[in-house]
Computed example of a mutant assay.
Amino acid sequence: MAKRRKVGNPMALGVLSVLAFRQMHPYEIASALKGWGKDRDLQIKWGSLYTVVGNLAKNDLITEVESVREGRRPERTVYRITDTGRAELLDWTRELLSTAEPETPRFRSGLSVMSVLSPDEVVTLLQQRLDAVGQAIAATLVEYDVPRLFLLEVEYDRAMLTAEAAWMRSLIAELESGTLPGIDDWRQFHETGTAPEDILRLAEESIKNP
């Protein structure tokens, strides 16, 4: 089970990760997160940056070093990570890498109720998704001028997308060939509006024995 964090916003993890390299002011933090692609990986919402930085400081995870002014620009506060913050960063990272948590992607939810659509429409929709996944895979093949160590999450994305694409191709093939178990009953349901008796029986038994 995931631990409760003093500052649990994903952006907090990103801020701590960049300050682990050197002290920065918030504008530099944002630039580093964007430059390293962490805004994509951590689903960062930029409007909360200063709030997150303030909360990290309030909880002694980062601390102010100095305030600097460059030319006519507004004064900027420089922060560094504290020992407490570094310990939190390490513990949080270890948890994320080692703990398997149940996740429910939107695609999985759609698969669970796809029988409400006809097999032919499902094939069309899966083909659309397969095309989109193919484009996403192509996007992961773009070369970045950074060490591989900082791109392992992109490799993970590619592996997951490639596996999903292979699985969808297999499912589409079963649907098109009519070899998916139960597809005849599924088609009959959409042609007649009558659900198979075994499916209805299962639902009724579940209601009687919750």
Rank of each mutant, 00 (worst) to 15 (best):
M1P: 10
A2R: 11
R4C: 06
N9Q: 12
P10C: 05
L13T: 00
G14Q: 04
V18M: 11
A20F: 11
H25G: 05
A30T: 09
S31T: 09
A32Q: 13
G35I: 08
G35K: 08
G37N: 08
D39L: 07
D39A: 03
D39G: 13
W46F: 04
G54S: 05
K58L: 08
K58Y: 06
N59E: 15
V65M: 09
E70D: 09
G71T: 01
R73E: 06
P74D: 04
V78M: 03
V78A: 03
R80L: 08
T82E: 04
G85F: 10
R86S: 14
R86Q: 13
A87Q: 14
L89R: 11
L90T: 12
D91A: 15
L96V: 05
L97F: 09
T99W: 01
E101R: 15
E103H: 01
F107V: 07
G110P: 02
M114I: 10
V122M: 02
L126Y: 01
Q128S: 11
L130C: 07
G134H: 01
I137W: 05
V142W: 00
V142D: 09
V142L: 14
E143Q: 15
Y144T: 05
P147T: 07
R148W: 11
L152P: 00
L152C: 05
V154M: 08
L161R: 04
T162M: 12
L171D: 11
I172S: 03
A173D: 03
S177K: 00
L180N: 03
P181Q: 07
I199M: 14
L202V: 07
L202D: 13
A203E: 15
S206V: 15
N209S: 06
N209H: 15
